[in-house]
Structures are given as C-alpha cells and as structure tokens.
Design a protein around this nucleic acid. Structure first.
Lengths: 190, 190
DNA sequence: TATTTACATCAACATTTGTTGATCTTAAAT
DNA sequence: ATTTAAGATCAACAAATGTTGATGTAAATA
C-alpha cells in the first residue's frame, strides 16, 4: 500500500541520502524531516537498508524496461541511441534522486544485493554496446571502440540529474535532450 | 614530512574511502589494513576529516594548476580542450582515488570547506566554458550552449578513474585519450 | 458496533565510532 | 651519549546510531 505519509517518507529519505550520503543519513535525520519519532519510520520500512534497496531496484527496473523496449524496436542504431538519451533525460528530470542512486548510491547496498545490481548494470551496458557495434557494422557509425563509446555516451548525461534538482539552473528538458543528442550523435555518427 | 608509513596510511585510506564511502570507512577499518592500533593513526593526521581534506584539496590544486597553465597558453580553443582531456586522462590513471574524491567524495567535507571547494569548482568550470565560448566566437566550434557543452565535455571522462583502478579492464591511457578526444572534438568542432 | 489500518509515542538496548592521554620502543640526528 | 622523531600499544569514554517492544489514537471499513 502506498499511503501519503509513506510517499513523503521515501521522498524525504531520498533527498537526505543524496545530500549526505547513505551512511551519512541517520534514521533520526529522516524522522526530523517527517516531524515524528524515529520508531515511527519502522512502520514504513523493515530496516534502513530497505530504503536503499527498494528505491534503487525500483528505478533500476524502470530503466531496464525502457532500454529493453528500445532495443527490441525496429529503429536504426542511431535512432535507438537517441531514444536512450530521451529516456535518460526524462528520468533525470522526473526522478533525479533515484537516478542519483543508480549513478553512485548503489555502493551502499548489502554485498549480495550489490552483486545483483552490478550484474544487471553490466547487462544493460552490454546491450547499449551491441547497438553501437551494430551501428558500426552497418556503416552508420564511426569505427570507434564500442566499449569506450558506451561509457562516453552514457556518462555524457551523468551530470544531468544533479543539475535538474538545482533550482538555480532552470534547464529546459526538451532543449537539453536536443543538445545532448546533437553532441553525442555527431561524436559517433559516420 | 612524508614518511613511508604515512604514505601507506593515505593510500589505504583512499582506497577504503572509495570502496565504502567516507562515512562508511572507520578509523578501525584503516587501522586493520595498516595492521596496527587505531590510536596510532592519529600520529599521521589530526582527525578523520583531515584525511579527506588534505587529499581532496591536494588533487584539487594539482588539477587547477594544470587547467590554468593550459588556459594561459597560446593554443587555439580546440587545442586547449584537447590538452584538458589529456590532463584529466593522465590524472585518472595516475591518481584515480583522488579523482574519485573530486567527482563525488567532496560531499563529505565540512560545511565551510565544502563551500570553498564548490566555489573553486565553479571557477574552473567557468574557465572551461570560456574556452568553448571563444571557440564559438572565432567559428572553430558549433554554436552549442556553452554551459551544457562544458558539462558534457567534462563528464564524458568521469567514468575513466573508475575503470582505471579496475584491473580487469586493462585500458591503454594513450589510446583512451585519443578516442575521447576524437569523440569530444567531433561533437563540438564546426 | 467491532475491527482493521495508518500513524504516532516513549523508553531502552547493544554496538559502533571518533578521539584522547599516558606510555613504550627503536632508530636517526645532534 | 643525549636528544629527537617515527611509529606503536593499551584502556577508556562520550556520543551517535539502528532497532525493538509495548502501547496509544483516530479514522475508515466490515
């Protein structure tokens, strides 16, 4: 069940975790933001670890499903890359704090869950790499190293979630998407 | 004074901090790696905070000095951008754990030192932006948004330090530099 | 009306953590 | 030979932290 107070709990938690890190955020910090007692938080979640676990694997699945739908489409490799950018930009604006977990928060997962996450991450990096390899094979992209290209393409957007929650910058999602695409595509297009 | 044991202390500390985060690394963890008592660590450093402080502002100054030397050179904007990439790649291979602090570890600085760091970071981002603005002005670069371009260029390398300490990937620094430059330059060159 | 559900409080716990002070050893410098 | 410096040890403490159990309340549901 997703009640109003529980929703608020996750929102406050994720903001604190982004600002202070997972270990740097205490249950008492979260309780303070919720204006209630610490013990109350355990009505929403079984443990502190579970906050990270649920949030991280939630956005992880959303991202994977999006990627898979794109991969399985009939678009050309270049067009697929554009759709992946589009997905990443949209999520960075809609759920920046969750994307932050995907980028760096995963380090604080428990050992076994971290292994799960890294396996899945390697899998989707591999999918993106295959798009690039196909693009090179059909002469649509430059003969660049597909592994390096994957890292460069994906990390060209890694700053975005951080700026999108910074009110002072006021970015336009559509324009950002256009410029990132232009940059990435002309860096990789033949 | 920089003695062998002190050097080892910082090396072990930085590796642990990268793996477990600053708050997730305890003085006892470090002592264990050093194979000595906790109290002994306070012969090398005044407090745990100081490990982060010294390491972070050390690499920060090194990076800034490098950037400044490039900016003040007579190279063209495009050539300056290439030199900046070169600097970043070199540091990512030579001192990946320090670069990790520059990318994400700074969040755990004390409030006042964090403000110092962010002011300096904004200053060098501004310098890179000015290089791009000049490149556009003299018709050497595409009329791209200079702010977005700065983020894209700088973050296109942010994955590197992480892979360079991963022995399983075995990257060639010179080849990496060449490919990053090709990617970035063709994304921005007119 | 009875009961479930969401949300809240209080007190208490066992650990973990950063840090200190007093002290010792061994090798180098004076 | 005496002093200095690097490195190490032990015991201890005060604060912070995740978590639990017992319990309460008000509104929705049956």
């Amino acid at each position: 069940m997703t009640t109003p107070r529980k929703t608020q709990f996750f929102a406050e938690s994720l903001r604190l975790i982004h600002d202070r890190g997972f270990k740097g955020t205490t249950m008492r910090d979260i309780a303070m933001k919720m204006d209630c007692d610490v013990a109350n938080l355990y009505n929403f979640v079984k443990s502190k670890q579970e906050i990270l676990d649920l949030s991280l694997f939630g956005i992880n699945e959303e991202f994977h499903n999006g990627i898979d739908a794109i991969i399985q489409s009939g678009y050309s490799p270049i067009a697929k890359l554009k759709r992946i950018t589009q997905l990443y930009v949209r999520l960075s604006f809609e759920k920046p704090y969750q994307i932050s977990l995907l980028v760096s928060g995963w380090r604080h997962l428990s050992a076994s869950r971290k292994a799960d996450f890294l396996r899945e991450r390697a899998a989707y990096e591999s999918k993106v790499r295959q798009v690039i390899e196909e693009g090179i094979a059909i002469g649509e992209m430059k003969p660049i190293d597909p592994i390096l290209a994957t890292y460069m393409v994906l990390s060209a957007m890694r700053w975005l979630f951080d700026k999108s929650m910074d009110n002072s910058s006021a970015l336009n999602p559509i324009e950002v998407e256009r410029q990132i695409n232009e940059f990435v595509i002309s860096g990789i297009e033949l």
